[in-house]
């Protein structure tokens, strides 16, 4: 049996189902689209490095330090801030 589809029938039997599927797909993927690319272990990493609570931007430039007598007047006050090298390192490592 051959059924001839008119324009109206085509809209009802094809257009509406396609629209419904499109809306459902949009609802399903909306959150991931809004969040952007997600980290997937094993795949390449796309983002530039992020350093949270890193070194302060106003670290003193050794070339612009005013005068040395300040160091001599308060020897204990300038311990390792800003230029220190950690001596004994601890911690842990892991991989996944």
């Amino acid at each position: 049996m051959i059924v001839e589809l008119s324009g109206h029938s085509l809209l009802v039997f094809v257009g509406i189902p396609v629209l419904v599927v499109a809306v459902l797909a949009l609802l399903v993927f909306a959150s991931s689209i809004a969040d952007g690319p997600r980290y997937r272990p094993g795949l390449s990493w796309w983002a530039p490095p992020v350093w949270i609570n890193g070194p302060t931007a106003t670290k003193p430039d050794p070339a612009n330090l005013p005068e040395l007598p300040a160091l001599n007047s308060a020897p204990g006050a300038t311990a390792t801030a800003g230029t220190g090298i950690a001596r004994t390192i601890g911690g842990a490592s892991a991989s996944w």
Binding site: R87, G90, G91, S93, W96
Partner: peptide
Amino acid sequence: RRLEIVTGS
């Protein structure tokens, strides 16, 4: 896929 936790002295 590496994680390092480093602690100072």
